Amino acid sequence: MSTALNIYDPSAKAEAGPSSLAGLTRAQMRDAMISAGVEDRKAKMRAEQAWRWIYHHGARDFDMMTNIAKDQRSVLAEQFTLDRPEIVERLVSVDGTRKYLIRLAPGVECETVFIPDVGRAGALCVSSQVGCTLNCTFCHTGTQPLVRNLTAQEIAAQVMAARDDLEEWPTSNENRQITNIVFMGMGEPLYNLDAVSDAIDIISDGDGMAIGRRRMTVSTSGVVPKIKELGERTNAMLAISLHATNDDLRDVLVPLNKKYPIVELMEAIKSYPSLGNSNRVTFEYVMLKGVNDTPAEARALVKLLKGIPSKINLIPFNPWPNSPYECSDWETIETFAEIVNRAGYASPIRTPRGRDIFAACGQLRSESKKLKASERRALQNNG
């Protein structure tokens, strides 16, 4: 049965108690050590020790931190925890995709998706906000009002929670399942750039989770003033949620376009740091039947992207309840892709993943396929 998952309860109050060190930046970790009574001159060293235990080894207990004196571990355990956000629901698709409903605070929840066989091994799609303000008409997330920005700690902790579930500690360069991070979950990352930038610093740190910056992609619907700053601060790969080649249509599909029209968006993209053949922009283009999928629009897309090192991801529309759109026919998508390919652009057709658990692109929101534990067991036994 389908039910609504409670993403936000405005009456909920934060629980009193020790705060978690999991997800803190290096500076925050040092400040935490000082607050625990560590001398200033030793705080940096102690923070570095804790950092490696938390982010390299995935420590869940201070007693694991054997290079920290036992009495100091006791002090830390009294004042802090190593808790991650709670995974309140974990759904696994028939194709191996995993969707997590993660409780970040009382009444505040987001969705995070692990997609196997993407990049070197697998990609984790993280959220930067609970809800969204952009109201893109093809996107289910856009139908949910913005609750709030996530902190850097909450963003980084999504990665930690997924690695817990995948049993991917300690960090290793071999047989890793999460090799790529994509900021394509709930929310517009560039409206929360400070937290996104700090989270990228945490996730990419070589003494911790060590996922390279060039293996992180930040997708924006086109917050023009922040695009160059994103590159300067993070050195992450850039993705643009485009979906139309003219302002009239994009104003409908991506209402942010009314504020930052296509010509301004393209100029901002051209200024992205280190743009080149080894650092191409990914343009996301969802295929909507009878809306943006004609050969003429494929040719217009080629013309629009001239001179920009680009890759175009063609995304078959993923349906959601009461959506006003349908997915383009497969033959139509292939014809579109062929025109773009002939012009010299890579234009892979993204295979829909996790549709059966509402984990596919554009489907994240406050609704999921939610079954009672007894019903899940019955399905597994019958499967």
Rank of each mutant, 00 (worst) to 15 (best):
S2L: 02
K13Q: 08
E15R: 07
E15C: 14
G17Q: 14
G17C: 13
S19Q: 15
Q28R: 15
A36L: 03
V38Q: 13
K44T: 14
W51N: 09
H57M: 12
H57L: 03
A59I: 08
M64P: 09
M64R: 07
M64E: 08
N67E: 00
K70E: 11
K70G: 05
R73G: 07
S74E: 15
S74D: 15
L76C: 02
A77T: 10
E78A: 14
R84D: 15
R90W: 10
V92K: 03
I102V: 02
R103L: 08
E109G: 05
C110H: 01
P116T: 14
A121W: 01
A121V: 15
L124C: 09
S127R: 02
T141N: 09
T143G: 05
L150W: 04
Q153L: 11
E154D: 11
A156E: 08
A156M: 12
A157Q: 06
M160E: 12
A161N: 13
R163W: 06
E167V: 14
E168I: 12
W169R: 12
W169N: 14
S172M: 08
Q177F: 10
I178F: 09
T179R: 10
N180P: 03
N180R: 01
F183M: 04
L190H: 09
Y191T: 05
Y191P: 09
V196Y: 02
D198Y: 00
A199I: 03
I203C: 10
D205H: 12
D207W: 10
D207T: 06
D207C: 07
G208A: 10
A210Q: 11
G212W: 04
R215I: 08
R215C: 08
M216A: 02
S219L: 03
K226Q: 15
I227G: 07
E232W: 09
R233S: 01
T234P: 10
A239Y: 01
T245L: 01
D248R: 08
L253T: 05
E264H: 10
A268M: 10
A268V: 13
A268C: 11
K270H: 09
Y272M: 02
S274M: 04
S274Q: 14
G276S: 15
G276Y: 11
S278Q: 14
N279P: 03
V281P: 02
T282P: 09
E284D: 11
L288C: 14
V291L: 06
V291P: 00
D293A: 09
P295R: 13
P295G: 15
E297N: 13
A300D: 08
V302E: 07
K303T: 06
L304P: 14
I308V: 05
S310Y: 02
L314D: 03
L314N: 11
P316I: 01
P319W: 00
W330L: 14
T332S: 07
A343S: 13
A343L: 07
G344F: 06
A346P: 07
A346R: 09
I349D: 02
P352H: 13
D356V: 00
A359W: 01
G362V: 04
G362D: 00
Q363K: 02
R365P: 07
K369D: 01
K369Y: 05
A373S: 15
S374P: 07
S374H: 12
E375L: 04
R376W: 03
R377D: 08
